[in-house]
C-alpha cells in the first residue's frame, strides 16, 4: 500500500483529506505543523507528500525546500494544496520542486486523488 503524508494544520480538513485518501486505498500519515511534518517525512519516507503552505512553526515553502535539499527525501513527489492562489506562490512552489500545485478553493478532491494515483501509481 502506497504511503502518503498529509501536512495540513487545519484539523477538520486534515481528517477529511485522510478519509478521502484512505478511501482511495492509500496509507495515510499526517502532521499539523511544518516542523513535525518534516520530521515525519524524513522518518517515514512516504511515496508522496501532500503539503499545505500556511502552517505553524515552519511554512510549507521551507518544508519543501528542506525536503528537496536532503538526498534521502528529494525524490519524494510533493503536491501543494494551499489557500495561496497568487501566480508568484505557484511559481515559487513549482520552482522549489513541487510536482503540482492546487488551490483549495477551486480543487475537486476526486481530481486531486486521481492526480496522486497517476504520480505514484
Amino acid at each position: 500500500m502506497k504511503k502518503i503524508i498529509v501536512l495540513e494544520d487545519e484539523q477538520v480538513l486534515q481528517k477529511a483529506l485522510s478519509i478521502e485518501l484512505l478511501g482511495a486505498r492509500f496509507e495515510v500519515l499526517s502532521a499539523l505543523d511544518g516542523e513535525a511534518g518534516l520530521a515525519l517525512v524524513k522518518k517515514e519516507l512516504p511515496d508522496l507528500v501532500l503539503l499545505d503552505l500556511t502552517m505553524p512553526k515552519m511554512n510549507g515553502f521551507d518544508v519543501l525546500k528542506n525536503l528537496k535539499e536532503d538526498a534521502t527525501t528529494k525524490s519524494i513527489p510533493v503536491i501543494i494544496l494551499s489557500n495561496l492562489g497568487q501566480d508568484e506562490d505557484k511559481e515559487k512552489g513549482l520552482a522549489l520542486g513541487a510536482k503540482d500545485y492546487y488551490v483549495k478553493s477551486s480543487t475537486d478532491l476526486s481530481l486531486l486523488t486521481e492526480k496522486i494515483k497517476k504520480v505514484i501509481g
Binding site: 487545519e10 477538520v12 480538513l13 477529511a16 483529506l17 478519509i19 478521502e20 478511501g23 500556511t54 489557500n83 488551490v103 483549495k104 478553493s105 480543487t107 475537486d108 478532491l109 476526486s110 486523488t113 486521481e114
Partner: peptide, 26 residues
Amino acid sequence: MSISLRDRWSTSILHLSAYIAGKKNG
C-alpha cells in the same frame, strides 16, 4: 470517472475551510 458521496463531502469541507481562511485573511 464517477464522483462518490465521500468525494463531494471532503471537497465541500475543503472549499468551506478555504472560504473561512479567505475571510479570516481579509
